[in-house]
Amino acid sequence: MTPSRTRSPASRAAQRWSPLLAGLRGRPFWAQFGGSVAALIVLSAGFQLISGSFLTLGNLRSVVEAAAVPAIIAAGISFVVIMGAIDLSVEGVMATASMVAALLVANGVNTNHLGVLGILLALAVSLAFGLANGILNALMRMPSLIVTLGMWFIGLGTAAVLFPQRVPQIRDDLLLGVARHGLLGFSLVVYVALVFVASAQAVLSHTTFGRMVYAIGGDEALLASSGLRTRGIKIAAFCVSSLFAGVGGLLLSAQLGSGNANIGNGHLFPAISASVLGGTLLTGGRGGAVQSALGALILEVLNNGLIQIGAGPYTRNIISGAVILTAFAASGVHRRQLLRVVK
């Protein structure tokens, strides 16, 4: 069972996967992001033709503002998705993070004003959700789908228990300032998103942890049978996902100016779509944080554009579903001849 270890497991994994990773990193920009960028251009041009007001500076700004938080969540969840697992708990984590932060910083319902400490505690709680997800999945060997589904309910329930009967208005200048202050026409939320997405990508492509995340997604059985320890990596990946969801919850709370137990509503499936969208359009289908963020941007362009062209509220669901399906189908056309297993 225990193979002899001459080198550290991580370095061997790196060696095993290095050709592939080199390929990924070495690939030119267009091969990695071409699909996503093309989709963005096609959609934007289409909306501009129909509405005539899509490609204005003001509207593009509002698309970017709206995409900032979904991009963070999608970048976080891609750590889990790249491993081939899934994290359904993000909405619950966002709800709890929002409630915890709103009740610990200066607010309208109690006398707390922990400031930065309150924000950090809310992030710590988010991290705890990720830790629990990871432990249950990696150590107790329960499928991530069900583990994170359970944690979704627990997160929503925790937020409901914390809810103080009256919407807690946030009065903390630091937290509110992130949404209220801006730079070069964008609010600080956008810059926070850039920092998180960039660091997520840096971690994925330049650290052992990141390489192991890809390796687990590649062939975990092979990895396991060669004696590499994957449990710590898996737990860490779930922690990243939850932490990013927590950050997303805090930023949304800052934008709203209040804590909200439903703040995560409707963020899970777009985040997963974004991370798969970004990953699949990239020929080769491996994905990354930047690709996921681009996926989130595509979905936001779709959302915004459909409002701009005046699509009826019911037909919006139909069109956005159809566009997502078409985008995937278009990106996969050339692969149909290959003998591939698709789950």
Binding site: I318, A322, G332
Partner: peptide, 30 residues
């Protein structure tokens, strides 16, 4: 569609879920 186009079932059925919810609203006039 999922098998022939080699698309993950998760994403195909997620997209159709969105389409179906719109269809239900449209047909029933909510």
């Amino acid at each position: 569609v999922h098998t022939w186009l080699q698309l993950p079932s998760f994403i195909v059925t997620l997209a159709t879920l969105s389409i179906l919810s719109g269809v239900a609203l449209l047909l029933s006039n909510a």
